[in-house]
Every structure is written in structure tokens, then in C-alpha cells.
Amino acid sequence: MPLIYFLVYLNKVEYGLYRIKYATGRHPRVAEKSRKNGDIIKLLKEIESLCQRSKQSEVILLVGDVGAGKSSLVNTVIRALTEQHLPRAKTGKGGAGSKTVTLQAFNQCGVNADDFKDDHDLKGLTDMLPTLIDFAGNSICQKEYLEILELILGGYIPTGTSSKFLEEYQREFGVGKLSRKFNASDPAMKVTKIVFVIDAQSCSLPKALIEGIQRAIQQHTADGQLKYHCDLFVVLTKMDVTDQETKLDSTASVKQSGVSREERERELAEILTIEGALNDNLFRWTSYHDKNTEQSPQIDIVALTFLKTMMQQRPTVARSSVKPKALLPKEFIQMRVEKILDDAWTYGCRNWNSLDQQTQFIVWAVLAGCFIIFLLSLSYA
């Protein structure tokens, strides 16, 4: 009997020490949870600091195929900020019914001041949170899509505009005419960052979409200056599903897409030329959804890290006060004529012996005509 009492006593002591360990945070699970909560508090403090120093909020354009997870990304950012389930972006499974039919903009990341508790760090600072624009992509990336994209980048198309209206306008009047309809730019809606939202389970990358957007942001003015100054980022969504499949079958992702996740990320980095900044420009994302509603520190940390990165403004680049010379019409004509003469001379030298006499005569006549025009342009100089 004394032995039994002694064993019961030891069991109670052990249980008491176990509870003390939990209460003091020394247990591994409690310590891990405390550390993650500490990371969340730190990120919120950093976002608060960015809100206080920002002069103008950033405008983030989310682009990607239908069903890639853009709306879920918006809702996850809202939940990470407010710790509340506030699904303000409509989500779907990628079918026709879930396609974004208007140009949606979520000012202040889609949150209001009333969404925060009174003691929240961001209470009263929501005006400086970024604007998130949800724009459905086009894997084919036709010229019609690129025209709409360029107008969005410049802040020309008002939010809430129907995608169907834009497409019908292009069909009726042709590509290139939308700029006449939307000719006023809103400086507060000019895009500063572009985020490619890509489904990690997708069998292939939307290369046409990526290349099309890269062409769009490389547009320049007549003076040679870039029209749009946008940084590029990537969000790989549905990582929870991908990781779960990988745990069940280590070759699942390879069977599905033909490449590993690491190879997919390297390919993305190469296409976007961000090989040296992959960890800073790529986010492995898991969203809150109907089957994943519990508050998760891991999800919140990624979402808040993403938001902090989006809020960091570009350094101001010093611009020269010297502007390129504006060409006069006669100078423009003279340069064109010189180019024609140069091309004709190069072509003639390479292929002269292979031409028949009649063609040689025509070439001489064209060269003589160009030379006469050139002399006339000099006489008017």
C-alpha cells in the first residue's frame, strides 16, 4: 500500500510540473506558439510604422488565371489584419460563375477602421494600407487584353468597370480605341506593384501572361522614359494542398506537373529575372477557405510579410533636368531618308550581282529619287 501511495504522489507531482511547464511557456508547443505570436506582433508593428511614414498608399495589381486564388488572397490578408472572417472578395472554383466580371479594387486592403479592435496597432491608420486590384488574367494574352492592362496600369479605367463592356467596346470600335474613351488618369490608382498569382498545382506556367505583362511595363514615352514603374512579385497559392499531397506521395507533384516545386520556382525566377531576389519576391501562400477556417499563425505570418513587402516604397530615382531634343519635321524626314539610303545601299551591295538588269535599273532610279529628296531637304535646312 505505501508503494501505491508513493506512485500516486509521483504521478501528481509529474502532472503539476507538466502544467507549470505549459504555463511558463517552456513546453515546445507553447514556446512555438508564443514565438509565432511574437512574430505576428512584430510584423503588425512594422506595418504600423510603414503606415505612419507613407506619403501615398501603394496600388497592387493582382493578375492570374481564373481560379488561381486572387480573391482568396485578398480575404486572407483581411483576416490576418483583423483576426476576423470577413470574406469581402467573392471566391469561386475557377468556373464561369466565379470569374471576376468587373475591375475590383479593395481600398485599404478591403478593411475599414471599424474592423479593428480598439487596442489594435492599426486602429486609425487604415488610410495608408495598400489598394489591392483584382484583375482576371488571360493565358493567351491577346492584344485586346494588353490594351486593357496598360490602361489599368496607368490608372485610366475606373474600378467597377465591367469587363464585358471593355471587350464589347473593343469588338465594336477596334483595339486601340479604349484610350479615347478612358483618357483621364487617376494618380491615386496608378499601379506600383504587380503580383502574379499562380496556382502551385497548375500543370504549366502562364508564360504568355507573364511575357505580355513584361512587354506592357516596358512601354516608354517619346522621350525614352518608362511609362510604368512597377515591381514584379509572385505568389504561389494552394501550397497547403500541394504540401499535403507531397506528404502522402513524395512524387505527387512530379506526377502532376512534370517538375518539382523547386524547379517551378527556379523557372519563374528566370522568366521574371528575379533569380537574385527569389526569397524576397516570391511568397508560398496558403489561404483561409471553407475547409480551413481556424486561425493559423503560419498563414498570418506569410500574409503580413507579404503586406509589409507590398508597402515598402521604391527609392526615389534622381532624374536629369536635361530633356531629349524635339525633332523638327525636316530633321525627321532627313533621318528617314538617310535610313532608306543606308538600307538600299546595304541590300544592293549584298545582292547586286544576283539582280537582273531591269531590277538594277529600278534600284538606281529609287536611289536617285531618294538622293534628290535628300538634297532638297538640305536646301531647306
Rank of each mutant, 00 (worst) to 15 (best):
L129R: 02
T126G: 04
S57I: 00
K36W: 07
P87I: 00
G137F: 01
Y22R: 13
I140M: 06
P87Y: 02
K21E: 11
R88V: 09
G124A: 04
I152Y: 02
L81Y: 06
P87C: 01
Q108G: 00
L149K: 01
I41L: 14
A80M: 03
S139K: 13
K45G: 10
D118P: 05
G94F: 03
K45M: 07
Q142S: 14
I47V: 14
G67R: 04
Q52L: 12
I20T: 03
S98A: 15
I140L: 07
V13C: 11
A23M: 12
E150M: 07
L50H: 12
A113M: 06
I148A: 09
T102S: 09
T102H: 11
Y15N: 13
T91M: 09
D118S: 15
L17S: 02
D114A: 15
L122M: 06
D65G: 12
L73S: 09
Q108M: 08
D114P: 02
S71Y: 08
L43S: 10
K70D: 02
R88Q: 09
L62V: 06
V30I: 14
Y9P: 00
R29I: 12
S49T: 13
Y15M: 12
G97F: 08
L7N: 10
G92T: 08
N138A: 10
A136M: 07
L151C: 04
A89I: 13
V8R: 12
K21M: 07
S139R: 15
K90H: 14
E48M: 07
L86S: 04
R26C: 12
L7H: 12
K42L: 13
D115F: 09
L43C: 11
T102A: 05
S71R: 03
N37W: 04
Y145K: 01
D39N: 09
V111Y: 11
E147H: 05
V74H: 02
T131W: 00
D121W: 00
L81V: 06
R88E: 07
V30C: 05
H85E: 10
K12E: 12
E83M: 03
L151Q: 04
L86E: 03
V111W: 11
L86T: 04
T131Q: 10
